[in-house]
Simulated scan of single mutants.
Amino acid sequence: MQESYLHELLKVDDQEIRLTEKQAHILAAAIEIFAEKGYAATATSEIAKRAGVAEGTIFRHYPAKKDLLLAIVKPGVLKFAVPVFASNMVEHIFNREFDGFEDLLSVFIYNRLDFARQNVAILRIVLQEFAFHPEIKKTVEESFLEQVYPKIKETITGFQKAGRLKQMPLKTMVRCIVSPILGFIITRFILNPDAEWDEEQEVDNIISFIMKGIEAEA
């Protein structure tokens, strides 16, 4: 995971960010420990030990522990993963014709499961720190509102006009759809990752649950 993540970190905004070997080790160690213990419970001395560097080396590159967190989350997830995910989601999910809303939900859920599976450590860090760092929260929210929400609105409105979905407020509709999906992903990869999961059956159950709440009556 670390090598893949750091590789993407080097390409933020199509500009190469050159890291020294020590910086790369520091970031990789920080990702591991932040994901394991959380930001607040992690000491820079632990990161230094796992990275194989002196603690002073960390502070030469990152004056404060918060700078190290943002060096991981903000450039990597917020400038790369979230905007690219947003544009890719619009391109690969919403810019398609579906026979029914159930088909769209299926593609969307499996898309997000694959994303989460490949980025569990980063997902854990973002979930842990989202509420405590306004910079992270603001960037994620802006990305969603600017790049994803308009396409969601267009798609749902189209199904409503066709009489396929209930005429409920859009924000309520989005909450009804997103909450069970997000809950499943968090449980699947963060809260109970070692359980025996039948993902196909779980996805079918989630889609059925969502559709019972939002599908227009025949």
Rank of each mutant, 00 (worst) to 15 (best):
M1Q: 11
S4H: 13
L9V: 09
L9A: 09
V12W: 06
D14T: 11
D14I: 01
D14H: 14
Q15K: 14
E16T: 14
K22Q: 13
H25R: 15
H25Q: 15
H25A: 14
L27D: 01
A29L: 03
A29Q: 06
E32A: 13
E36N: 08
A40F: 11
A41C: 03
T42F: 04
T44C: 12
T44S: 14
A48E: 03
A54I: 00
E55H: 01
G56M: 10
H61F: 14
A64W: 02
L68I: 07
L70V: 02
K74R: 11
P75W: 03
G76W: 05
G76H: 06
A86Y: 08
S87D: 15
V90P: 04
E91F: 10
H92L: 14
D103I: 01
L104R: 03
F108K: 06
I109K: 07
N111D: 12
R112S: 12
L113T: 08
R117A: 15
R117F: 10
N119I: 04
V120C: 01
A121F: 07
A121S: 15
I122N: 00
I125V: 09
V126R: 00
Q128M: 13
E129P: 07
F130A: 10
A131V: 05
F132S: 14
F132Q: 13
H133I: 13
P134L: 06
P134A: 08
E135D: 15
V140W: 10
E146L: 11
Q147M: 13
K151A: 10
K153Q: 12
T157N: 14
F159G: 09
G163M: 09
R164T: 03
P169C: 12
K171G: 00
K171R: 11
K171W: 05
M173P: 01
M173R: 04
M173A: 13
I177D: 01
I177L: 12
V178L: 12
L182Q: 14
F184N: 04
F184A: 02
F189K: 05
I190A: 06
P193G: 06
A195F: 10
D198N: 15
E199N: 14
E200R: 14
E200F: 02
V203P: 04
V203Y: 07
I207Q: 03
I207G: 02
I214F: 09
I214T: 10
E217H: 07
A218G: 10
